[in-house]
């Protein structure tokens, strides 16, 4: 996909996020929107996956360690063809396969059930280790939140991945600087993030997580990095794309009301029109 196409797709993913969370009357728009460009790049450019064969043996794996941003993942998966886009509005509804947090048992394309913060990265490390043991060349990607890395298990996993030199593993930190209770640095600072991963023997790359050129270059650099895992620290804006949600901790985990939903969709409509000019 060329850059304009990626931007249009990211726009569709954002519409999916807002639509599904509005339909669910609950969910996490802030972190889904901050990672929307990352989800888009991963599923439309980076990952070797096949919607026709979601369990393809040598597929690249993606673990959404920050599982609460499932709406972003679901929107990307749906647009990539893993399941119907129309199903997004069943998010969080009783009986829907689109659970509030990803369930690998019932969502095509989901490689690991996640939701309890800090756990997903370890499972991604296990997958990367399995690839090494089996001498397979698939790669494993994990997306973590910058608040999530307050969990000690993240650093257990980082220590192991660095120790084992898992160069088929890429950890992406969605560095949107906010968590539920406020600014990450005020709640309990994990900064500097890159230095911490470096200390665990990671190659680190810091980028603008909304700039596809930088995202593209970072993933290429990660692929070329040998004998050590890569951590991409993606500077993002929480709620990116919806004016009143941007950089606002209150939009971490609540659904827009009808009036807010209409404003959000109008903003997205205008942004979409601009992309088509």
């Amino acid at each position: 996909m060329d850059r304009p196409e990626l931007k249009k797709m990211a726009h569709e993913v954002r519409k999916g996020i807002i639509t599904s969370i509005y339909s669910a009357k609950a969910g996490h728009p802030g972190g889904s929107l901050s990672a929307a460009d990352l989800f888009t790049y991963l599923y439309f450019e980076e990952l070797n996956v096949d919607p026709e064969n979601p369990k393809m043996e040598n597929r690249d794996r993606f673990v959404l360690s920050k599982g609460h941003t499932a709406p972003g993942l679901y929107a990307a998966l749906a647009h990539r063809g893993f399941f119907p886009v129309e199903d997004l509005v069943t998010l969080r509804h009783t009986g829907s396969y689109l659970q509030g947090h990803p369930d690998m048992k019932c969502v095509p394309g989901v490689d690991m059930s996640t939701g309890s913060l800090g756990q997903g990265l370890s499972t991604a490390v296990g997958m990367a280790l399995a690839a090494k043991m089996d001498k397979k060349d698939y790669r494993v990607y994990a997306l973590c939140g910058d608040g999530e890395i307050q969990e000690g298990q993240i650093w257990e996993a980082a220590m192991f991945a660095g120790h084992r030199r898992l160069d088929n593993l890429v950890v992406i930190i969605d560095h949107n600087k906010l968590q539920i209770d406020g600014r990450v640095e005020d709640v309990c600072s994990p900064y500097p993030i890159d230095e911490k991963f470096k200390a665990f023997n990671f190659h680190t790359i810091t980028i603008d997580g909304h700039n596809f050129d930088e995202i593209d270059a970072a993933f290429k650099e990660a692929k070329e990095t040998k004998h050590m895992p890569t951590a991409i620290i993606a500077n993002t804006i929480k709620g990116k794309g919806i004016s009143f949600m941007e950089d606002a901790a209150e939009w971490h985990g609540k659904a827009p009301k009808e009036a807010e939903y209409l404003v959000a969709m109008e903003e997205l409509k205008k942004a979409g029109e601009a992309l088509c000019q």
Binding site: V125, A128, D134, Q153, E156, A157
Partner: peptide, 13 residues
Amino acid sequence: ANMAGIAAGLAAS
């Protein structure tokens, strides 16, 4: 905790 997660990832693979 990490061991349990790694085991899960290995089993999923």
